[in-house]
Amino acid sequence: MAAALRIVGYGNLGLIVPALALANACVLLAFFATARDSIQASGGRSSLGELTLAEQIRLSLSILWRIVLVMIVASLGAAAIGFSSFAPYLLSGLDGMAFDQVTHLGRFWSAAIAALVLLIIVNAEGNGGRVALFAAVKDLGRHALWLGAAVLVLGTINVALGYGQALVRTAIWHFWQISMVDQPLKNLIYVVFILGFAMLRLWITLSILTFGLKQSYARGG
């Protein structure tokens, strides 16, 4: 759904803001599902699977506006200290958890946002579903050693995935130039390409972050 909404938004500038907002909410829902499986696969316990779809949507919207606020503050702060050309990319931190960022620094920023979102979810699970941004930020500091290392590893992998995705995108473009298949099939191939990398990026993101968080609890830091 997020992939389809992004295509609609970028294809119609009049719909880009609501389409991308809904796409970000869908990314969070996908993040929940992947986080649940990743936590359970690492030997942990998660109550995310017990939430109804309505509860997941409410939780995602509650997290969404807080993360958007974080990204706006970070963007304004970057612009204020002289990084005005890079500042707008900080607004894509949430989107970048599943979809490719434009800059390398943006890819590391998306990894950091993903770590914060994971801690918000973990904190909410143990707090009756109440979302607490500042508590999650405090937890981020408490787990800074292992989660910081996980963010650096994830950011590096995101950079490599960006190059890989660019190569596949170029191959698809060349295929479109020489292929005689119908346009609907070409569109389907492109959607599968976007969705495939989005799913891969989410799985890698949660696998690395949950491993880092587990190690932090086990070893401290």
Rank of each mutant, 00 (worst) to 15 (best):
P184F: 08
L200F: 07
I178D: 15
R58V: 07
A136K: 07
I189M: 01
W109E: 07
M199D: 13
G43K: 12
F108V: 04
L28Q: 06
R201D: 05
I16S: 13
L161F: 03
G96E: 03
S47Y: 00
A218T: 09
T52M: 02
L15A: 09
A111N: 04
A78I: 05
G148W: 01
G126L: 00
A218H: 07
N158T: 03
A98L: 10
L29G: 06
M71L: 12
M199F: 11
R36A: 14
E50R: 14
L213C: 06
A25N: 14
R130V: 00
S42K: 15
K186H: 12
H174D: 14
T205N: 04
L119E: 04
G11R: 12
V102A: 15
S62Y: 07
S62E: 14
V151D: 03
F99S: 07
L116D: 01
G9K: 01
K138G: 11
C26R: 15
Q40P: 12
D139S: 11
A124W: 00
G148V: 03
Q177W: 13
G141W: 05
Q215K: 10
G49N: 01
L167V: 14
A2W: 09
A25I: 13
L53C: 08
L145E: 09
L140F: 09
G11F: 03
L188D: 10
L118S: 03
R201W: 04
V117Q: 05
V181C: 08
A144N: 10
Y163F: 11
G129F: 00
A4K: 15
M1L: 14
Y10E: 11
S85C: 06
D37T: 10
V117H: 02
S62W: 10
T205A: 06
A80Y: 02
G126A: 02
G77D: 02
Q215T: 09
F108M: 04
F86A: 04
A21N: 14
A80E: 07
G96P: 02
S42M: 14
F86G: 04
A21W: 12
I113R: 01
L119P: 01
A25W: 06
R66V: 00
S179K: 05
A115I: 02
A3G: 07
A2N: 12
R201M: 05
G221S: 04
S42D: 12
V117L: 06
L152G: 08
A132Y: 10
L28P: 12
L76N: 12
L133P: 05
Y217V: 15
L105R: 10
L94E: 06
G148Q: 06
L152M: 03
F211S: 13
G77I: 04
S110L: 03
N127K: 02
L161D: 07
A3Q: 12
I120A: 03
T103G: 08
A112E: 08
R169A: 11
S47H: 09
L152R: 01
T34S: 14
F175W: 13
P18R: 00
R6E: 14
L48Y: 01
L94N: 02
A171V: 12
L94M: 07
A54K: 13
L161Y: 09
L29M: 11
A25Y: 04
A79L: 01
I204H: 05
A3W: 08
